[in-house]
Every structure is written in C-alpha cells, then in structure tokens.
Amino acid sequence: MKAQQAPERYSQGWIAGLDMRTALGRDMAARYLTVCDDLGGEASLSYAQRSLIERALWAEYWLASQERELAEGREFDAGRWTQASNALLGLWRTLGLERKAKDVTDLSSYLRRKAEAG
C-alpha cells in the first residue's frame, strides 16, 4: 500500500513510496523531475545525485511542515529548523544551484549516426 503522507523520518525511496493519486505524491514526483531536469536530466545523474535530490526534497518538506507548525502557534524548535535549513542549503550547493542544459542530440546528428549504423 502506497503512503498518503511523507514519513516522519527520512527513508530512501520515500518519494516512490508515495501514493501518486494524492496531491503530495504528484507534487513530490514533479519536484523530483524538475530538479533532475535542472541538473541536465535524470538519465545524466549519478546514483549519488539522485539520492541527494531525494534527501533535499525530504528536508524541504520537513522545513515547510515546521513552518506550518510555527504559523499555527504549535511547538517550534528554532535550533532544529536552523540546522535543517543549513543542511538543505548544503545539499543544494552540492548538487549545484545553476541549471544545466540537457544533452540532446540534434536531428542532423541523429540521422547521420543512424545512416552510419546501417
């Protein structure tokens, strides 16, 4: 059975484990693909990069949930929030903050290679 909400603690594969019929599942899947595209496309990313993206998105989700708690007047730990913010920034910096172009073969190169391959 697919999860309806994010886990309280990070676990590898948490995005794939979400029910994609839910708003959260669709949103996280879209965010994951957006970050992958920003880094040149999922196919060009290493396992480590994909893992860091998943961790960054969980941290981002956790931070947003803590901010909702604060806005609703519930318990809020500023130290944990600050530590998580710094960790998220480190993940984003490791992945890269600049967009990278996808490696896309132009049509003439594709046709030339196809002709050469016979």
Score class of each variant (00 low, 15 high):
residue 91 L to K: 11
residue 85 S to G: 04
residue 57 L to P: 00
residue 54 E to T: 01
residue 82 T to E: 12
residue 78 A to Y: 06
residue 111 L to M: 13
residue 50 R to V: 08
residue 7 P to W: 15
residue 38 D to A: 05
residue 106 D to T: 14
residue 84 A to L: 02
residue 113 R to E: 15
residue 114 K to H: 13
residue 49 Q to P: 00
residue 44 S to E: 13
residue 99 R to I: 03
residue 24 L to I: 15
residue 73 G to H: 10
residue 46 S to W: 04
residue 68 R to F: 02
residue 20 M to L: 13
residue 34 T to G: 08
residue 118 G to E: 06
residue 21 R to E: 15
residue 80 R to M: 06
residue 31 R to V: 00
residue 114 K to A: 11
residue 80 R to F: 07
residue 42 E to I: 11
residue 97 L to I: 07
residue 48 A to K: 08
residue 118 G to R: 05
residue 61 Y to D: 12
residue 103 D to A: 14
residue 4 Q to H: 07
residue 38 D to V: 01
residue 87 A to M: 07
residue 110 Y to L: 08
residue 71 A to R: 12
residue 13 G to I: 03
residue 36 C to F: 07
residue 89 L to K: 01
residue 74 R to V: 00
residue 43 A to I: 09
residue 4 Q to D: 11
residue 54 E to A: 04
residue 74 R to C: 01
residue 4 Q to V: 07
residue 27 D to S: 05
residue 68 R to Q: 08
residue 113 R to P: 03
residue 81 W to K: 07
residue 64 A to I: 01
residue 35 V to F: 03
residue 75 E to S: 02
residue 115 A to K: 15
residue 58 W to A: 10
residue 93 R to C: 06
residue 43 A to Y: 07
residue 109 S to N: 11
residue 48 A to Y: 06
residue 17 G to Y: 05
residue 74 R to L: 05
residue 87 A to I: 04
residue 41 G to L: 01
residue 3 A to S: 14
residue 58 W to D: 11
residue 12 Q to H: 10
residue 41 G to E: 04
residue 86 N to T: 11
residue 95 L to T: 02
residue 107 L to I: 01
residue 54 E to I: 06
residue 116 E to Q: 14
residue 10 Y to F: 15
residue 34 T to S: 08
residue 41 G to R: 03
residue 85 S to M: 04
residue 42 E to G: 08
residue 8 E to N: 14
residue 111 L to K: 12
residue 100 K to H: 03
